[in-house]
């Protein structure tokens, strides 16, 4: 699965994108955030406050209980601040 990071999530994690092999137990957006925290201390720090970690699946905003699959484009980012 391809994961994209934006804004301070990108700078804290240190990469704009990464490819991961999804373990079978990761089936929702919320599962993914929890699992990503275990990848490195940088991930754990960036993703610590789930209120500040929003998820988009295939370029649509989704809640944490939204299902994900390995062919999805998943993006993690802080609350948006455009306009």
């Amino acid at each position: 699965m391809k994961i994209l990071y934006f804004a301070w999530l990108r700078s804290k994690i240190g990469v704009p994108t990464e490819s991961v092999d999804l373990p079978a137990e990761v089936s929702t957006a919320g599962d993914l955030v929890e699992w990503l925290k275990t990848r490195s201390p940088r991930h754990a720090d960036a993703l610590a406050n789930s209120k500040l970690v929003k998820v988009a699946v295939n370029q649509e905003h989704v809640p944490y209980d939204h299902p994900i699959s390995s062919t999805d484009e998943v993006a993690l980012f802080p609350p948006v601040t455009g306009g």
Partner: peptide, 22 residues
């Protein structure tokens, strides 16, 4: 737009750069 369009603002200030909070 302000709550749904995926834009993020990074401000340059005398104390350095900071991401704008929602």
């Amino acid at each position: 737009l302000k709550t749904k369009a995926p834009f993020w603002k990074l401000e340059a200030t005398p104390e350095g750069e900071r991401w704008v909070e929602a």
